[in-house]
Each structure stands twice: as C-alpha cells, then as structure tokens.
C-alpha cells in the first residue's frame, strides 16, 4: 500500500513536469528522466502495474467544475488505450475525483462524470466497455493537500487503476 501511494506521487510529479515541457512524450521522459524513474527503471516488468503507472501514466486532469477531457489530456488517454490494447487481459477501474471546493454530494456526481468521460474516451479508442469500470470518490481522496490552485488542479482527476490481469512486478 505504501509502495503504491509512493509510486503515485512520483508518477504525478513526472507528469506535471512533462506537461510543461514535452507533453507528447511523457513515457520516454519518465523512463530516462528524474532520479526516481531511473532508480526503478531496471525492475519494471512490461505489462505490469508499474509499467502502466510509470511508463504510460495513470491519470488525467480536469478544469474546475468541468468533466470534458481537455485537449492537453487526450494524448495521455490515447497512450492508456494503446497500452490496454497491448494487454487485453487487463481490467481497470477509472476513479473520478474532485477538489475540495464543491459540496460533498455534488462532487460525487462530478467525479462520476469525470470517470465516465475518461471511460468513454478509452472505449472510443477501442477498449471494450466491459473492461472498464468506474467509481467516484468525489472530494474524499485528495492527493495534494494544499489549499491552493496547484493542489486543486492535481485533485481534479480521473485515475485509471488496474484491478486484474496485469503482469507480476
């Protein structure tokens, strides 16, 4: 559990820096880039949980009170779809999240819309709908704890989580 949450933090940091410089090639950046990526790179098994999180990227971000897939997030989901096609045994759940500034119930609904937007994108890119479940956590599971736009932007997200079928890592 602690291993996984640590991985998430590393992955999201890499994604953010990738976004500002080379949005089209986050996988390569993650593999050869920062110290954390380099340290773990040798052990990542193709088709594993970590392969997906580190080399593909497991999440996309949303604008405030919006659930449409932003243009700058489409490449991320296309990469997810390509990876999922390569590993057809993998089942996933897309978790939808909101930042802390909405009411609890509204945010549950908003998280569900975001998760479904990501799911619909994956399905439109060739992933069978029965491989993708959705769940909303509303504002219950933030990853960034600051009370500022930088944190909120990280919390407005849909995270694709592998539930079965991945290679052992």
């Amino acid at each position: 559990m602690s291993f996984r949450s640590l991985t998430y933090v590393v992955a999201s940091l890499l994604l953010l820096s990738a976004c500002s410089s080379t949005p089209s090639d986050q996988g390569a950046g993650a593999g050869s880039g920062g110290a954390a990526g380099a340290a773990g790179a040798g052990q990542i098994v193709a088709g594993s949980d970590r392969d997906f999180i580190v080399n593909v990227g497991d999440r996309v971000y949303f604008d405030l009170d919006k659930f449409n897939i932003r243009n700058d997030q489409r490449a991320q989901l296309e990469k997810q779809a390509a990876w999922l096609k390569r590993y057809p045994a993998v089942q996933v759940t897309v978790e939808g999240h909101a930042d802390e500034r909405g009411t609890r119930e509204y945010n549950l609904a908003l998280g569900e819309k975001r998760a479904n937007s990501a799911k619909d994108f994956l399905v439109a890119n060739g992933i069978p709908a029965n491989r993708v479940k959705v769940i909303s956590y509303g504002k219950e599971r933030p990853v960034a704890l600051g009370h500022d736009e930088a944190s909120w932007a990280q919390n407005r997200r849909a995270v694709t989580v592998i539930t079965s079928g991945a290679a052992g890592s």
Partner: peptide, 9 residues
Amino acid sequence: MSMARDGNT
C-alpha cells in the same frame, strides 16, 4: 436519493 450512471445523475 440520487443515482449516477453513465455520467448522468
């Protein structure tokens, strides 16, 4: 109550 399904509540 509300039910959310397929992106609609």
